[in-house]
Design a protein around this nucleic acid. Sequence first.
DNA 1: TGTACATCAGTGAACGCGCGTTCACTGATGTAC
DNA 2: TGTACATCAGTGAACGCGCGTTCACTGATGTAC
Lengths: 198, 198
Amino acid sequence: MATDRPYHHGDLRRALLDAAATAIVENGPSTVSLRDLARRVGVSHAGPVHHFRDKAGLLTALATEGFELLADALHGAREQGGIAELGVCYVRFATEHRAHFAVMFRPDLYHADDPQLAHAAERAFTSLTEGIGAQVTEGDSAAAVLAAWSLVHGFATLWNTGVMPPELVTDPVDGARAITGILNRAIGPAGGDPAAGS
Amino acid sequence: MATDRPYHHGDLRRALLDAAATAIVENGPSTVSLRDLARRVGVSHAGPVHHFRDKAGLLTALATEGFELLADALHGAREQGGIAELGVCYVRFATEHRAHFAVMFRPDLYHADDPQLAHAAERAFTSLTEGIGAQVTEGDSAAAVLAAWSLVHGFATLWNTGVMPPELVTDPVDGARAITGILNRAIGPAGGDPAAGS
DNA sequence: TGTACATCAGTGAACGCGCGTTCACTGATGTAC
DNA sequence: TGTACATCAGTGAACGCGCGTTCACTGATGTAC
């Protein structure tokens, strides 16, 4: 608390990332501006430069954080097994961290070659593909991974964009369960077909 | 042809839409600027205003065109029947008209309440849902529509973003065939049976 | 065939704005002795 | 316990830029008579 408006902020870095997330949910990731974030946080407009070299730097940090959160979440879901769990987890992440999710797939906005970011992205990707791959018992594993990823990514994107009509879904997690359930019938272990051996 | 640099352009509207598509493929839809498009087309920067009231107006026109193209394409694919055909059609559209596709799902960038746009979007959406719905023979039809749409939309998005690793797919249409084939196993007519005639 | 006139398409100067980034700076903090 | 000093975090003025939009305008086109 300290006196009012202390010279040092305390955790400006964190505050800026949070403000960015809020701004992104409000207006989308392409219109964020450092000056606006500084304003939201109550700091001089030159403040952010100190923590993130530039605007892309800030978004790189946000995307990295997103990939880390996603990787952790997927890792957790793998323990519980099942393609459905992984898919639901992906969708839950996307809807609960809309801003992160929106930035992560906009590599034009950040420093895509940043090593920390690349590492986090790799980790998330591995969690996803290995998690799915391990569940596939029928047919082409690569195609199954592709299908599962596309399915949940598309659903999350359409939901977040707000273009999905309410007669199709009202709750994103329910929707995710429904569609991953369908996919599971085709590629999952002991799918709808009990005759799917080994 | 006329003399060099005639006062009247001929078809400035069309030229601007084409330039916009090019610019969007290069830099994404959020950085297009009217002044840049005017420059590309070789016209005064105030020219575009005459054809599209403002920047959002231009993107509205592009999105509308996109929905119309998609609706027509899907309508054509319905004739040939099959969820796979519809899905492949969707993906083909998205990859062949990247700029249109990118704008269509960015309602923050255009006048979403424009009547012509709304009508075209409705038409595309109907073609898609009815086309898929008609093929569903097993289980919940709404969930199947949702799954199919999510699947192809996700695939198209991931492909266009360039985040899909080459070990998973190299050609978008092949990829689309593979994943729609999988889905078809779960929801299609005579599930998995290729002998689906007429 | 010719002329007057309305309409339309494109011009170019001007406006005001918010932005990213740089800069020399100052206030606060912590550490060595 | 006190003092000197280095380091760090945030300041605020300044820069140059590209943008969207407005404006009075002018060149070209087509149509009525």
